[in-house]
Design a protein around this nucleic acid. Structure first.
Length: 467
RNA sequence: GCCCCGUUCGUCUAGCGGCCUAGGACACAUGCUUUUCAGGCAUGGAAUCGCCGGUUCGAAUCCGGCACGGGGUACCA
């Protein structure tokens, strides 16, 4: 059995790695690893108009952030270099040429305006808006001459009869009528290939054994199958997984849902949690568990078990899962994650002390600041009106000022006694104190927080609040 | 319009002809724990398995039609 080789082929046309690509990457990566194969990243930058500067770099670094490592790619090379399609132009032109020679493709001189007109007409006539094949008939002697002076594209000559059938690991047999397939452009007038030519040529040349991608590619697969046949190449194993959807069930899009890897990173989602969540899309653990590592996923995943239905992306469940991951992270690690998340802006030792207090209270790393900012900055405002409680605060300050053993328990006992003595309900009493010290109504446990802040700071804050 | 792929609680899913008066997780609600918020624990509501026919002693599970959803229909990927 040939060694398994899988790939993802993102195009650098967005600001970053799309979460849908992360999903496809994960499935490919996991499948590769469980088969001890090789995982390849290929950059499909054939649409020059849509290329976004810096996109490729961010895609690669996001993959790295997720810990999805490739064995071959544009940044690290490999036996089938280059891994950027824009650097493989000659290959595509040569292969298009082969197709022409074999009679499976033809030159087309129609202009975009011609095509537009043709399409409009066909739609009006109620026919499928396919290319009508008028350039198929151009004589060899004529086109040999015309390609020297005119702009042209090369089109696939789709057989007029019959069906193109292929087997999909996830969906079984899928079949298309050839007469409904378009004479797809293979080589554009700018000399760049379209996706369809490039993907087939590269997958073959790079010895890709399994094509695992999203459902949106099913309709173009018959064209690819035709190409493999025309070239006389063996067809790789094909699997079309689900496309991720917006909550309204349409294809996941940046309009309706955060899609860029960087968004999740900036919000403080953990890459392991995202991957775990993604693993739950279209697949479930045989033991019914929701939380498992990528190692476990590799062990239990089966490609043929992937469900074909497009699942809706549920940020709420991702947040829950992320919270679970945070709670399972060792304190020392969580501390450095938070520290780095905030660009090392806050004193590491202070974060260290606060971590045990907030570990159960945050779902994403960015929840940390709103909860803990009072540790680093004196409150400027108070979320409740303290003007009615000035005397109480003065009394508290005095009592606390005499406390020698500045520890959470002692502080707590002292305050508890005072509340009891004054017959103030705990909830009310501590809320006043809480806001005086932190400015906030929602905080980590108060006594512990005061211990961390230190006697001096706490006293000065309470005094300030009582003025 | 045409082609293709789908259809189990709001969401992610279990289910491969009897174990299903359909199970779990998220979300939601309630209660307990309590010094806020979380967390934890407990409880609850929530899918007549899209609909209609068929096969079968028996169907969420197999078959057909319809409806609905999604994807594709570019010199985008």
């Amino acid at each position: 059995m040939e060694k398994v080789r899988c790939r993802i082929a993102p195009s650098p046309t967005g600001q970053d790695l799309h979460i849908g690509n992360v999903y496809t990457a994960l499935i490919n990566y996991v499948f590769t690893l469980q088969n001890k194969g090789r995982f390849i990243v290929r950059i499909e930058d054939t649409d020059r108009a849509r290329i976004v500067a810096g996109s490729e770099k961010r895609i690669l670094s996001s993959l790295e952030w997720f810990g999805i490592k490739h064995d071959e790619g544009p940044d690290i090379g490999g036996p089938f270099s280059p891994y950027r399609q824009s650097e493989r132009l000659k290959l595509y032109a040569d292969h298009a040429e082969i197709l022409i020679r074999k009679g499976y493709a033809y030159y087309c001189f129609c202009t975009p305006a011609d095509l537009e007109k043709m399409r409009a007409l066909r739609i009006k006539e109620g026919k499928p808006p396919l290319y009508d094949g008028r350039c198929r008939k151009i004589d060899a002697r004529v086109w040999r001459d015309r390609i020297k002076k005119e702009k042209y594209v090369i089109r696939l000559k789709v057989p007029e009869k019959g069906r193109t059938v292929f087997n999909d690991v996830i969906r079984g047999e899928i079949s298309f009528e050839n007469r409904l397939l378009d004479d797809q452009v293979l080589l554009k007038s700018d000399g760049f290939p379209t996706y369809h030519l490039a993907v087939v040529v590269d997958d073959h040349l790079m010895k890709i054994t399994h094509i695992i991608r999203a459902e949106e590619w099913i309709s173009s697969t018959p064209k690819h199958v035709l190409l493999y046949g025309f070239f006389g190449w063996p067809l790789p194993i094909i699997a079309h997984g689900p496309v991720l959807r917006n909550p309204d069930k349409s294809k996941l899009s940046k309009r309706k849902n955060p899609v860029w890897a960087s968004w999740y990173r900036e919000k403080g989602f953990l890459p392991e949690a995202i991957l775990n969540y993604l693993a739950l899309m279209g697949w479930s653990h045989p033991d019914g568990i929701d939380i498992f590592s990528i190692l476990e996923f590799i062990k239990k995943f089966r490609l043929e078990d992937l469900k074909p239905v497009g699942p809706a992306f549920d940020l709420k469940k991702l947040e829950w899962l992320n919270g679970e991951y945070i709670r399972r992270t060792p304190n020392s690690k969580l501390k450095s994650q938070i520290w780095e998340f905030y660009d090392k802006l806050y004193p590491a030792d202070l974060i260290d002390k606060t971590v045990p207090l907030i570990k159960e209270r945050i779902k994403i790393l960015s929840d940390y600041r709103p909860l803990c900012r009072f540790f680093f900055k004196e409150p400027k405002e108070y979320e409740i009106d303290l003007s009615l409680h000035k005397n109480l605060l003065k009394e508290i300050a005095q009592l606390l000022g005499n406390l020698n053993n500045w520890q959470a328990d002692n502080i707590g006992d002292l305050m508890q006694n005072l509340a009891r003595k004054l017959k103030i309900k705990n909830a009310d009493f501590f809320m006043i104190l809480r806001v005086a010290v932190t400015g906030q109504k929602i905080t980590p446990p108060l006594n512990e927080s005061m211990e961390i802040l230190g006697k001096k700071v706490v006293l000065s804050r309470i005094k300030k609040a009582s003025l």
